[in-house]
């Protein structure tokens, strides 16, 4: 590692020979990376904030991008909605380099948003935020009946689920039959 060398170089800024070296090393000042979601809106995020995401942290440490390279290659998260990624980025920025508090009351109250956020956070491997989100879901489940839970989160009953599966099979069967019929027609 060259960290000791860099340490010495930053302690002695008067040395002109070390100046190009420190410019080449992106850690001192803070480095930035770029991410975008489904909506292609690019967010500029500091490496420090991105530390929260084990997934992105892993990607960064393997790449060794320069500032220009990072800017030219934003990380695409096509499976995450733009507004959800914005929430994640905001949370990472707010909690950059800080120990996370035991509770987070700033999570979305709307269950649709909360669930999308949970999926994004799980994918990005942001452990603390996932914990808060799951706590929030647990709170929303508490005191509800199975029927209420099914209704709120649109979970089909086993009977409905089975019926839907049967229907899907039937349709798939029909389509397959249709295709073979079409293929047979083509062959004629």
């Amino acid at each position: 590692m060259s960290s000791t060398e860099q340490g010495t170089s930053s302690a002695a800024p008067a040395e002109p020979t070390t100046a190009p070296e420190s410019a080449a090393a992106p850690e001192v000042p803070e480095s930035f990376y770029y991410v975008h979601g489904k909506d292609k809106v690019v967010h500029k995020v500091s490496a420090g904030a991105l530390q929260h995401s084990a997934l992105i942290h892993g990607m960064i440490s393997n790449l060794g991008y320069t500032e220009e390279q990072a800017k030219a290659n934003p990380f695409p998260f096509e499976n995450i909605d733009g507004d959800i990624l914005q929430m994640v980025v905001d949370w990472c920025n707010q909690h950059k380099g800080k120990p996370t508090p035991p509770e987070d009351t700033n999570l979305p109250k709307q269950k649709e948003k909360l669930f999308d956020l949970v999926l994004a956070v799980n994918y990005l491997e942001i452990k603390e935020l996932l914990t808060y989100c799951c706590k929030q879901v647990a709170m929303m489940v508490k005191g509800k009946s199975p029927e209420e839970i099914r209704e709120i989160w649109m979970i089909p009953t086993d009977a409905e689920d089975e019926a839907a599966e049967k229907e899907a099979k039937k349709r798939a069967g029909k389509e397959a039959a249709g295709e073979t019929a079409a293929a047979a027609g083509d062959a004629k």
């Binding site: 949970v118 647990a138 005191g143």
Partner: peptide, 23 residues
């Protein structure tokens, strides 16, 4: 919208852990 029944395993485990026994 994502449904509770589509949550990955790790997420479900977390939710169970933070729920009370009756939930």
């Amino acid at each position: 919208m994502s449904s509770l029944s589509e949550m990955p395993e790790l997420v479900m485990e977390n939710i169970m852990w933070f729920s009370d026994f009756r939930s």
